[in-house]
Write a protein that binds this DNA or RNA. Structure first.
Lengths: 190, 190
DNA sequence: ATGATTTTTTGACATTTGTCAAGAGTTATC
DNA sequence: GATAACTCTTGACAAATGTCAAAAAATCAT
């Protein structure tokens, strides 16, 4: 598991032996159950997880009581309710694990300590924030510019290993359409 | 102008005299004309601007030749084609000034130098990246969860000083609807 | 395996939104 | 201040998507 984390961090910055040890020290292994919420609407999220495999779903309940899936995060990645973690405001999204899985957990305090003590980790923090920003920007761009059908096909192409296991209703709200429309769309693609 | 920049940076981190001087040294004052593109589709964006007043529009041309406004950025703020600036990939959005205005320009090289030399600026970089991420996340959330009408009213409330001067067509595509639909919506609100 | 639960598909119909075209209003320019 | 260029509104109609209800298919738990 820590193996997977190093590989991930190494994909954007080189860490020394010491730095690897330091981050290992503050990480806590956890087992997460399918459907478990790692961040919850109304609660402040004070931790970040690192997942080496599997994926997470971001969702909330809209004014009419429907669950709306706003995002999927595919491993390897850090996962948190980003806005809540950063600002300390209660999360408006729920973040849900879609599988049983092993993760590494980091507390906000430990992470901010790291930022203070090691400029290198401050940089890691910046790079990850930039990654999140770029990801959201792309998601936004796709939502505004591509039809639901194009976005669905893109999701299929980019995450073939997962997409066919995601319940249709989740994908539909992620695409901003109803389940029925997605079902019909799918049929017409074949 | 630099005055306004310090005030802005100070709103999230305290800078020393030296640090203020350093950032002044690498900033270049520029005059920007209304409608000027500060980042352009297909071109790599290697600079960040700081604007003390006014606002910018992010847009691109969709597959059918229509201009789609994907975002507005209101001063005070740093402005760039974020994804292109960070990744070095050609920008997919155009970023357009909506007024004549004065801005400060920073080159990528100078900024990255600053990151290397001063951990404090590395942190500023992180905080700004986080701000961008949070902003996109919120925009995404609104797009997926609120009706066009709610989003329009929200835009009105949050930026009353600008919204009534933004051409309707820009706002409409930002909301993901047509100009005609927005016009009818507006009528029904009154 | 079998019944229960969940997920997906389908149909009929209502509603929303888009499209196209024309006209009214506004703003800029000479 | 008249003309042109742009922006906004309106109407009639078409197309896309949503809603509700029910059936079919897939999955889960005992």
């Amino acid at each position: 598991m820590t193996e997977s984390l190093h590989k991930y961090i190494n994909s954007f910055i080189q860490l020394s032996k010491e730095e690897i040890e330091v981050i290992e020290e503050i990480s806590v292994c956890k087992k997460i159950k399918k459907n478990e919420l790692i961040a919850e609407n109304g609660k402040v999220c004070r931790k970040v997880l690192f997942a080496g495999e599997g994926y997470f779903r971001f969702f909330h309940i809209d004014s009419r009581g429907n669950e709306i899936t706003s995002d999927f995060y595919f491993a390897p990645s850090f996962i948190t309710s980003y806005t809540s973690f950063i600002t300390g405001v209660p999360s408006f999204v729920n973040v849900q694990a879609m599988h049983d899985m092993d993760v590494l957990e980091f507390s906000k305090e430990d992470l901010y300590d790291l930022y203070d003590k090691y400029p290198k980790f401050e940089r890691v923090g910046r790079l990850i924030a930039e990654k999140v920003a770029i990801n959201s920007e792309e998601h936004l761009f796709l939502l505004l510019n591509q039809t639901a059908q194009t976005r669905y096909q893109r999701l299929l192409e980019q995450n073939p290993q997962y997409v066919n296991t995601i319940p249709l209703q989740y994908i539909a709200s992620y695409l901003g359409i109803t389940q029925e429309t997605l079902s019909r769309m799918r049929k017409s693609i074949k």
